[in-house]
């Protein structure tokens, strides 16, 4: 079966003022559909940059990037946005919920942007799985970190993305909530064969993944 993610000599260079910063220096990575991959490495090694590239939030400086058979390098910004809308879900360390909306509205916003209309069965299934029944009418400021992250997960998977990209999902959580979130990811991965790429500093978090990719200085040093 064709891999869902393929990168070939992927490079990304940022300009910060007059200084060029090489965030990725030739990354080769293949991820099969349904895999749960943890990407670990020290700060500044290029993990987040890789995640942003895989999510189409930014473009590579050079190299090849195929997601679900589509060449990201040849796509316009609009095409990548459309692709992201339908095939990629993001979970962030800081939850990134829209602060003026309730949990329910945050989840529904993803469906609204996708444009396929509200699917009440899918919504109910996700809410049941994440135990969010009594939190749906709360705004983010009234939710704990763990609850906010569960809402963020619900929002990320409500549209059935092909790939779930999680950037330090347990970084802002205590150990108890971290475990809840990790169990949840494991469940989503196993129940729905959801492909997950998770960036983490936490070795315990990485341990629940099928595979751990280690990065340093913009390279993959072990896989």
């Amino acid at each position: 079966m064709e891999p869902i993610i393929v990168t070939e000599d992927l490079k990304k260079t940022y300009r910060i003022g007059k200084v060029m910063v090489q965030a990725l220096r030739g990354v080769n990575l293949i991820v099969q559909e349904g895999e749960f991959v943890a990407i670990v490495g020290p700060s500044g090694c290029g993990k987040s940059t890789l995640l942003h590239l895989l999510g189409g939030l930014t473009t590579p400086t050079s190299g090849k990037l195929f997601i679900d058979g589509n060449d990201f390098g040849s796509m316009s910004d609009g095409e990548r946005t459309r692709f992201r809308r339908h095939k990629i879900g993001f979970v962030f360390q800081r939850f990134n919920l829209l602060p003026t909306l309730t949990a329910r509205q945050n989840i529904r916003m993803a469906q609204h942007i996708q444009g396929n209309g509200f699917n009440p069965h899918r919504f109910q299934a996700i809410v049941d799985m994440l135990g969010l029944h009594d939190k749906l009418e709360q705004r983010p400021y009234a939710l704990s970190g763990g609850e906010q992250q569960r809402v963020a997960f619900a929002r990320a998977v409500i549209c059935e993305p092909k790939i779930l990209l999680a950037d330090e999902p347990t970084g802002n959580l205590d150990s108890e909530n971290s475990q809840v979130v990790l169990d949840m990811m494991r469940t989503i991965n196993r129940s729905f064969r959801q492909t997950i790429l998770m960036i983490t500093h936490n070795p315990e978090a990485a341990a629940i993944a099928d595979r751990t990719v280690r990065m340093r200085d913009g390279h993959i040093i072990s896989d």
Partner: peptide
Amino acid sequence: ILKSLGAS
């Protein structure tokens, strides 16, 4: 956030 959700 909206952009990460795929908002055009």
